[in-house]
Simulated scan of single mutants.
Amino acid sequence: LARAISDAAWSRFRSMLEYKAAWYGREVIAVDRFFPSSRLCSACGALAESMPLSVRIWTCACGATHDRDANAAKNLLAAGLAVSVCGAGVRPQRRTPGGQSATKQKTSQREP
């Protein structure tokens, strides 16, 4: 019962947020709940192995040191911008075969 109440509360919050965003001409972008935002290095894009919640600060192999919450915020911002600019999805590629992913896109080089 508590889980159902929690789900209803989040649903209500999201609907109010979407209403307010539409009112002000903004867009709400929902990222997949399994997106590894806190384990993904915002500097190099490397994905860390399993990380317990007790780990608050971690260092990537590239040498960047991350606060778990600040790193997740950077990754969620990048994923949201990828959706709004490129139309890419933030779900894992295996769920949307042939779809676009929110990874860095290579630009095509034109021959002069």
Rank of each mutant, 00 (worst) to 15 (best):
K104Y: 10
V83A: 05
R12F: 14
P92G: 03
T59R: 15
Q105I: 10
L81G: 11
M51W: 04
Q105F: 09
L17T: 10
V90P: 06
A22R: 13
A4P: 00
G45Q: 03
R14S: 12
E27I: 15
L76F: 03
G89I: 00
D69Y: 01
C60V: 10
S11Y: 04
C41Y: 02
K20N: 04
R26C: 11
R26H: 14
T96Y: 12
Q109D: 10
A48K: 13
R39C: 00
P112K: 14
L47H: 09
W10T: 06
I29F: 08
H66W: 14
A48N: 11
A2M: 07
P52T: 01
G25T: 06
R14C: 03
S6G: 09
A78Q: 12
G25E: 07
F35R: 00
G89V: 01
S38F: 03
R110M: 13
S11P: 01
E18N: 05
S54N: 06
P97F: 03
G63N: 07
R14H: 03
M16D: 05
R68P: 01
R14W: 04
T107D: 15
L47A: 08
R91A: 13
R26Q: 15
L1Q: 09
S84C: 09
E49Q: 11
S37T: 05
I29Y: 13
A21F: 11
R33T: 15
A64S: 09
Q93K: 08
G80I: 06
I29P: 00
S108M: 06
R94D: 13
M16N: 09
H66A: 02
A88R: 02
Q93F: 11
L76Y: 00
A21P: 08
G80K: 05
F13D: 03
A70K: 14
C86L: 11
A88T: 06
S37N: 06
R110D: 09
R26G: 03
R3N: 11
R3C: 04
R3T: 15
A2N: 13
A61H: 11
G63D: 07
Q109V: 15
A72N: 02
T107I: 11
V85Q: 14
S108V: 14
A70M: 14
V83H: 09
T96L: 15
C44A: 08
L53V: 05
F35Q: 01
R94E: 11
P92I: 04
A64H: 08
A30P: 07
C44H: 02
T107E: 15
E49W: 05
T65H: 03
S84R: 15
S42P: 00
R68H: 05
L47E: 03
A70E: 13
R91L: 12
R26M: 07
G99T: 09
